[in-house]
Design a protein around this nucleic acid. Structure first.
Lengths: 199, 199
DNA sequence: CTTCGCCTTAACCAACTGGTTAAATAATGG
DNA sequence: CCATTATTTAACCAGTTGGTTAAGGCGAAG
């Protein structure tokens, strides 16, 4: 889990991310982070003066990881169909590596929505207007007012939700851990087909 | 907000739900629940002997509300198309009333997945096999091993995620509160069309 | 009137938690 | 060898938090 050779500060951030992802800001304990990082509280505060500051750093990174990847794909000068394929492929594989990331962001943003605009103030992460134009060019059914919004929401929902709600969905469908992970891998092609089939 | 006339215990549960939904188990404070319910800590512990017990009651109710409604719709002796329409209509309107419910369940289940099976042990909430049969009868494209699972996951994801991730999605699509709520209302028909179009 | 269930007041406690401090010890590089 | 940085130890502190206790008020029903 913890990369032995990594400089202490990075290792702290890695471990802190794991703890914060799973337990949230209020549920995480500085002592636990220190323990799992193999250091003591004093050194933890030597690198991060407060829990708040440590959390902010972790949250900023998490948001960057989650939105940055999406932006890089969606803002590219790429035809629509390829863009969708790229988004689905990227998101599903990225989320498979850190399944708790999405739930963490959702939970913390629910309590403090302002944290989003604090970091991504006016610098919009994704160029929605470009996306809207590309979609509108794909057919008349995408020229109604909210068509682009619905398509985007569908795309994100289909990719993210099954990872986010795994502890709920898997038991409902009587799928144990490994079985469910295979199911998640299959979804990439399923989702792509469904979305491209709409164009 | 708080129904004045309701018996104290019910009012406590209502208020406690609001607080737990938004802040989670570890973020909620007994003092805050007491304050918002207009009572004092002593009386709060008079009705619920511990935070754990209060939380368990709230969580059990939340899970029942979230899954019970789904089950009632999906297990009914109803043709597939009608069932889908019912599910989408029910879920979207139910979630619109308590937007924080889904995020709460996801967050708490992430930390303690066993809480799900504790209450819904072997009594499966939804009859997945019936659903699978109905789908298989709808066409050959639904006779592959995981077809029912994918369709079900799609349906749930499309309905739940935009509510769950509202603090993330709304700003990304530059939609303020009221605008986004209108968007959510529109989705019911959008989702139904998309799902039925697949049959 | 009195009993009983609901409710308040207010003080109190122990455990937990974030954070600090000081002194000592390694490790590192110039 | 020296100065700086990284790290440990261990004690300590103050604020928060869940939970308790005892005494009493109050309305309603018998």
């Amino acid at each position: 889990m913890a990369t032995i050779d990594a400089p202490t500060r990075d290792r702290i951030l890695t471990i802190a991310s794991e703890v914060f992802y799973q337990k949230g800001l209020s549920g995480a304990r500085m002592q636990e982070i220190a323990d799992q990082a193999g250091i003591n509280k004093a050194l933890l505060h030597y690198y991060f003066k407060s829990k708040e500051q440590l959390f902010d750093t972790v949250f900023q990174r998490a948001l960057g990881e989650f939105l940055g990847g999406i932006g890089r794909v969606l803002n590219g000068e790429v035809p629509l169909r390829a863009k969708i394929e790229q988004y689905v492929a990227y998101t599903t594989t990225a989320l498979a590596e850190t399944p708790a990331l999405a739930a963490f962001i959702v939970h913390e943003l629910q309590q403090h929505p302002e944290r989003l605009s604090e970091q991504f103030g006016s610098g919009q992460v994704i160029d929605f207007e470009q996306f809207r134009k590309q979609l509108a060019a794909a057919g008349p059914q995408f020229q109604t007012p909210n068509a682009a919004e619905h398509f985007f929401a569908n795309m994100v929902a289909l990719c993210v939700y099954p990872v986010l709600a795994a502890p709920l969905l898997a038991p409902l469908m009587h799928q144990a851990g490994p079985q469910y992970r295979r199911f998640l891998r299959e979804r990439a092609t399923q989702i792509t087909q469904l979305l491209l089939g709409q164009l």
